[in-house]
Deep mutational scan, measured.
Amino acid sequence: TTVKLGDIKVTFDNPEKAKKYAQKLAKIYQLTVHVHGDTIHVK
């Protein structure tokens, strides 16, 4: 599962960890989390 934020891409083996990371980023940057299959976009 890949978390994308602009040019930053972080890949996790564990989808749950990816989701938590995405939510953490979203909170920090006051953005929202969008899940598209294996990719989680923070924008």
Rank of each mutant, 00 (worst) to 15 (best):
T1Y: 14
T1L: 08
K4I: 15
T39Q: 06
Y29I: 03
H36E: 14
P15L: 11
L5F: 14
Q23N: 09
H36R: 10
K19R: 12
Q23L: 12
A18F: 03
K24W: 15
H41S: 08
L31Q: 01
I28G: 01
P15M: 11
Q23C: 15
K27E: 11
T39H: 07
T1G: 04
K20A: 13
K9E: 13
T2Y: 08
K19L: 15
K19W: 15
N14W: 06
Q23Y: 13
V35I: 13
Y21G: 00
A26D: 00
V10G: 01
H34L: 11
Y21M: 04
P15N: 06
G37R: 05
K17E: 13
Q30K: 12
A26Y: 04
L31W: 05
K9G: 05
D13W: 11
Q23W: 11
V10D: 01
E16A: 10
I8P: 01
K4Q: 13
Y21K: 00
Y29S: 02
H34N: 06
K19H: 12
Q30Y: 08
F12C: 08
T39G: 03
T1R: 06
V10L: 11
K27S: 09
V35W: 10
T32N: 06
E16F: 10
F12Y: 02
H41Y: 14
Y29G: 02
Q30W: 08
K17M: 12
T39V: 13
N14A: 05
T1P: 04
T2C: 13
D38Q: 09
V33H: 01
I28H: 08
Q23D: 10
T1Q: 04
D13S: 13
V3Y: 02
V3H: 03
K17H: 11
H36W: 10
D13G: 08
A22S: 02
V3I: 06
P15K: 09
H36N: 11
K4H: 11
I8C: 15
T39F: 09
E16W: 10
V42T: 02
V10Y: 10
V35L: 08
V42S: 02
I28E: 07
N14H: 07
V10R: 09
V3W: 03
T2H: 09
I40T: 02
D13V: 09
L31M: 12
A26P: 00
D38I: 08
Q23F: 12
K9V: 13
K27N: 08
K20T: 07
L31G: 08
L25H: 00
N14I: 05
G6Y: 10
I40G: 02
K27G: 06
V10P: 01
H41F: 13
D38L: 09
E16T: 09
Y21E: 00
K19M: 15
L25I: 09
G37A: 06
K24G: 05
A22W: 05
F12Q: 01
T39Y: 08
P15E: 08
T32Q: 09
A26R: 06
L5I: 15
T32D: 06
A22D: 00
I40D: 01
K43R: 13
F12V: 01
L25G: 00
D38H: 10
A18D: 00
V33G: 01
K9M: 13
L31F: 07
G6S: 04
A18G: 03
K24D: 06
V33E: 01
T1K: 05
H41D: 07
I28Q: 09
N14L: 06
I40F: 07
D7P: 13
T32F: 09
K9H: 11
Y21C: 11
Y21P: 00
K4S: 08
A22L: 06
V42A: 02
A18R: 01
Y29F: 11
D38P: 06
H36S: 12
G6T: 04
N14F: 05
I8D: 02
T11R: 13
K4L: 14
Y29W: 08
H34I: 14
V35F: 11
K9R: 13
V35E: 07
K19F: 15
F12L: 02
Q23S: 07
Y29H: 06
L25D: 00
Q30T: 06
L25W: 06
T39M: 10
K17F: 09
K27D: 09
N14C: 11
Y21Q: 00
Q30H: 13
N14S: 12
H34D: 07
E16S: 08
H41V: 14
L25M: 07
V10C: 15
Y29E: 00
V3L: 04
K19Y: 15
T2W: 07
K43H: 12
V33R: 00
I28S: 04
T32I: 11
T39W: 07
D7Y: 15
V3M: 03
F12E: 00
K4G: 03
K19I: 14
Q23I: 11
L5H: 07
K27P: 00
Q30R: 10
H34Q: 12
T2N: 05
Q30I: 06
G6D: 04
K20L: 11
Y21N: 00
G37Y: 05
T1F: 13
G6E: 03
Q23K: 09
E16L: 10
I28M: 13
D13Q: 11
H36I: 15
D13L: 11
K17Y: 09
V42W: 04
K4V: 15
V10Q: 04
K20G: 05
K19G: 04
T32C: 15
V3F: 03
K27A: 11
I40C: 03
V42F: 10
P15A: 11
H36F: 12
A26S: 05
D13A: 12
Y29P: 02
D7N: 15
G37E: 06
N14D: 13
L25K: 02
Q30P: 02
H41I: 14
H41W: 13
Q23G: 04
L31E: 00
I8R: 10
V10H: 04
P15G: 06
V42M: 08
K17Q: 12
K17V: 10
K4M: 14
L25T: 01
H34R: 08
N14Q: 05
T39I: 13
Y29V: 02
V42P: 01
T32V: 12
E16K: 10
H41T: 12
N14G: 04
K20M: 11
V35C: 12
E16Q: 09
I28N: 04
H41G: 02
